[in-house]
Design a binder for these strands. Structure first.
Lengths: 369, 369
DNA sequence: ACGATCTAGTAGATCGATCCAGTAACAGCT
DNA sequence: AGCTGTTACTGGATCGATCTACTAGATCGT
């Protein structure tokens, strides 16, 4: 985006008084420190950057002068010469979803620890906003880009970033066909753990609800479900898989739909915790108790999961690790633009709480004969 | 913070080849456009800023050249001369709380609409992180600062920002004694509406739970509770007011504590929706149904509120308005550093759903005689 | 026809840092 | 004394924009 109509013509005859006043209340610069401490601005610059060539006495003198005149380093000016700005852009699909908010918080933590600053945008699943944001941050010369891509982001868009020399890492979601670094919780592995757990408890009819093929997360979690069943020789029954949004409403509707099947399942794995809460409400509406009459497993382990009654069995994602890995991978990419692309999967962990149990006697005996 | 040890000595003898290569793959500048279109860089600059002095033919020629060489405006370089950077810093106490995430999203929306970019930090209620963030963004010459202050932020800190000529607006929470612009939902007014509603339904014994004196939000909401009771001549009964955290656990514990009173209340207003959900779980654990046996009102109207069963009666905050007002006030401050400080309260609205009802017959008849 | 005004530009200084190339002062060695 | 090396700096170019001050040429009014 080019600078817009915000441009204003200045009045020609600016008075000298004005200019002086402006000068006096503007922030002190390297030159002011140099004057105050009797060295050149080049020396001051070296001191501020902790150059080992400056002897201790000079260092102290300069730093003292800097402190006393209230100097603040001007990164904007510096980065005109330097090859970096220490700014990292972060585009997130949906900040108001606690799962993503926590991912963003973890990444911001990791970046702050590395002395970087975050330019953030909540794209709200809009590819248009996502593109606009990226165009803008290019103008600010960010060193790199972390994206939780909006639904509908296409590979060519992601690949174009690479040809624009903008280091980029996708987080939690990927885009099919994109050649790009990627850090994500192991959605597939987590779902395998969830289904394994249910199978070990004795379940054989396990549904999956709230699944979503439009995003890689949905496909990965479904793949885990499919693979875990296959591993135990349980055929996948399409009627037990319901896809839709990722809302509580959907969870409720889906679980009821499954219960109304001629041969209902005895357990469900859910796309995420929100869907699982919906499922729990759906069970309640049929007078079934999760963890006694029917098993429910969530995904994400958001803060709510431990607070519900019964507490939700779910797959936990170590968010700080995701944040750290994303930042590491981005730094590696910044250091070497031609390195091979890498995908890092962060192991997930099943947290068994109170919503899973063996299948109720009735259906178990049925299965026995 | 001064630039740190990340500084590295460059090898002296950089080859000319290297320098050339670097030049060729570095981004095109105004001068490149000037060369490509046969005008001076001053003219290019005027074109890019939509100056009306440039005739259409020249404009098109220059813009075409800019497009064809893939020019990207360099705001870092521009803001070395300009009095602004179009960057706004936003410090938020707790991003993983959906209420604040939604406030941040609303503000980011409003700033994007004004063609600004957001530097964000999640301070996690740490005043140390908050200070560190503000020191950092000073180095980046942000135009202004929006803060949801961390618990424990003190007035002198906030006031120091003003003397540093850093325009600042507090959002949702204020700091006692701070002379600063402030935009907030009308916590007090919202709570008055909530209590009025309960009183109109016939309640006279109304508790307040999850209240928190450490933050202005807590004090404001409590003030609303106190004033609404006073307005209707109902004496404030200290035993009915329980303060603590803002978690679901606290909500659950508090409502149970109230039910165990010799003369329990028939309704509670909660510090926020999270606490209200806890209260609903607490009621369930005593076999009471919210909205039939006992009334519960939340605050914030987070997305969850409408999805719970029964759906929560709560006080809604028009977040986009909060975001827009915060941005407007910040812009006013940026335009005039010496303007009088202003507080803007955004009206809140009671959303009556299914958790409020008249007090149950038993206690009503008791009251009648 | 001539100065005045307007149009469409331009050269060069500037913002505040970094960085290259160089220097003055002095020590150490033969 | 003369040479080399090291230490402790420094001047001035530079990054990529903006902004001031200025100009060449066209147009206008009388």
């Amino acid at each position: 985006m080019l600078p817009s109509g915000s441009f204003k013509w200045r009045v020609r005859d600016v008075e000298i008084v004005d200019a002086k006043a402006r000068k006096s209340d503007s922030r002190p610069t390297l030159v002011d420190i140099a004057k105050a401490s009797g060295v050149s601005k080049a020396t001051v610059s070296l001191v501020l950057r902790n150059s080992p060539t400056i002897p201790e006495r000079t260092r102290e003198k300069v730093l003292e002068a800097a402190r006393s005149i209230g100097y603040v380093y001007n990164r904007g000016a510096a980065s005109l010469r330097l090859p970096h700005t220490r700014m990292i852009a972060m585009a997130v699909n949906n900040l108001t979803n606690p799962y993503f908010a926590e991912i963003v918080a973890a990444i911001e933590d990791a970046l702050t620890a590395e002395n970087r600053i975050v330019l953030m945008s909540n794209t709200g699943e809009s590819v248009a906003r996502q593109s606009a944001f990226i165009e803008t941050v290019r103008e600010y010369n960010v060193d790199g880009l972390l994206i939780v891509p909006a639904v509908g982001t296409d590979a060519s868009f992601v690949n174009s970033l690479h040809s624009l020399h903008l280091p980029c890492v996708l987080v939690s979601r990927t885009v099919p066909g994109a050649k790009v670094d990627y850090v994500s919780p192991d959605h597939r592995g987590g779902m395998i753990k969830a289904v394994d757990h249910l199978i070990k408890l004795g379940h054989t009819r396990i549904g999956m609800i709230g699944s979503n093929e439009n995003i890689s997360t949905g496909r990965d979690r479904f793949a885990g479900y499919r693979e875990a069943l296959a591993k135990h020789g349980i055929p996948l029954e399409p009627r037990l898989v319901l896809s839709g949004g990722e809302t509580r409403d959907v969870g409720m509707a889906h679980v009821i739909q499954l219960l109304d099947l001629p041969e209902p399942p005895t357990a469900v794995v859910c796309f995420n915790d929100i869907v699982a809460f919906g499922a729990m409400l759906g069970l309640r509406s049929r007078n079934l108790t999760p963890g006694e009459d029917f098993s429910v497993v969530g995904f994400d382990d958001i803060a709510e999961a431990t607070l519900w009654r019964p507490a939700l069995t779910t797959v936990a994602i170590p968010r700080p690790n995701v944040g750290k890995a994303a930042v590491q991978l981005l730094f590696r990419r910044i250091g070497n633009r031609d390195a091979p692309f890498e995908s890092v999967l962060i192991p997930t962990e099943l947290i068994v709480r109170d919503t899973t149990c063996p299948p109720p006697k009735k259906s178990r005996s049925k299965r026995k004969h």
